[in-house]
């Protein structure tokens, strides 16, 4: 972080030269160069070991990456995550609004829900839902405490997939509720007052004024949750449901190629997470409208401008006019 000016004093410009005619020497950052070199060496070592160690079995990875059962597993993982996220955030929003309502009963129920579903481990909840048929052989639809109109066997309604969706969704709702609630609380009290003073109907106050502003706080945490879900769905392997992780474990159980199969799963999880991250960026950009004076550049625009900077740095002679 020091500027090493080693020019002999004799080349100093005559005293009295105006500032804007003097040469500007950019500050040198030797520490940064050392760190860069160290990182480059480390990266080279990692890449080298990945390529030269035959036990990674990249040919096996390549063969299985787009194999039919794996792709089916990926699709199941996506399906599970999508349904869980929708169920979780829909129910979570309802729970958050209940928690913020003026009715003590609604507040208590919402609090109790969050308390229970955050307290019990997910794996335990999944097994409970899967074994629901043991507690209730039939599920009835009818008048409470009265006659029932429709009755179906529990097992036909809650299969493996149903149990997985129920377990993941209800668990997720407890967490989503807190995220949505935090978002709503982050909206300035003056916004509620302005909406009330204009006579805007209650429902519209929530959907048109409060939630759009709350989204700025909600989105980053919510996406975090969705990414967590993508990987978290792997827990339903306890139900022997054919999502990505379960499929991979079945294959390596048969072929004994454990490591390459784990790499296959890892690659897919990285791909899924990357897609969500890109979506997140654009959703955040959408909701930052009005909150920022100028919208931030898209990642593509940023890469382009940074490349431009680097090229300009190496292309132009140092100390050139700026």
């Amino acid at each position: 972080m020091t500027t090493l000016d080693t020019r002999p004093a004799s080349t100093a410009p005559p005293a009295g030269t105006p500032f804007d005619q003097l040469e500007v020497v950019p500050a040198r950052h030797p520490g940064r160069w050392v760190a860069t070199a160290a990182v480059v060496v480390l990266l080279a070592m990692v890449v080298n070991s990945l390529v030269t160690n035959p036990r990674w079995e990249w040919d096996v990875v390549g063969a299985y990456l787009t194999e039919e059962s794996i792709v089916r597993g990926v699709l199941t993982t996506i399906e599970l995550t999508a349904i869980t996220a929708v169920v979780g955030f829909a129910l979570g929003t309802v729970l958050a609004l209940m928690r913020l309502s003026r009715s003590p009963l609604l507040r208590a129920v919402s609090w109790g829900y969050t308390w229970v579903f955050r307290s019990v481990p997910l794996i335990l909840q999944l097994l409970l839902w899967y074994n629901l048929a043991y507690l209730y052989q039939h599920l009835d639809l009818g008048i409470p405490f009265g006659p029932s109109f429709v009755s179906v066997p529990t097992l036909s309604l809650i299969d493996k997939f149903g149990a997985a969706v129920l377990g993941l969704g209800l668990h997720q709702a407890a967490y989503s509720a807190e995220i949505v609630r935090a978002g709503i609380l982050s909206v300035d009290q003056g916004q509620h007052e302005a909406a009330a003073s204009l006579g805007i109907p209650r429902r519209r106050q929530t959907t048109g004024i409060v939630l759009p502003q709350a989204m700025r706080t909600i989105v980053p945490t919510a996406v975090n949750e969705v990414i967590g879900l993508f990987k978290g769905t792997s827990i339903v392997y306890v139900l022997a449901l054919g999502e990505l992780f379960y499929t991979v474990s079945v294959i390596y159980g048969r072929t004994q190629r454990v490591l390459p199969m784990l790499v296959v799963a890892a690659i897919w999880y990285v791909v899924l997470t990357t897609v969500v991250t890109v979506v997140q960026y654009h959703v955040e950009r959408h909701y930052s409208r009005g909150a920022l004076r100028t919208l931030p550049p898209t990642p593509l625009q940023r890469v382009r401008s940074e490349l431009g900077d680097v090229l300009a740095r190496f292309g132009a002679p140092r100390g050139a006019t700026r």
Binding site: Q191, E193, A196, S197, L198, G199, Q213
Partner: peptide, 16 residues
């Protein structure tokens, strides 16, 4: 309330 127009010290415009 729609019969009253209220102007706040802190404006309270909807920023979005």
């Amino acid at each position: 309330r729609t019969r009253f127009g209220f102007v706040f010290q802190s404006f309270n415009l909807f920023p979005h």
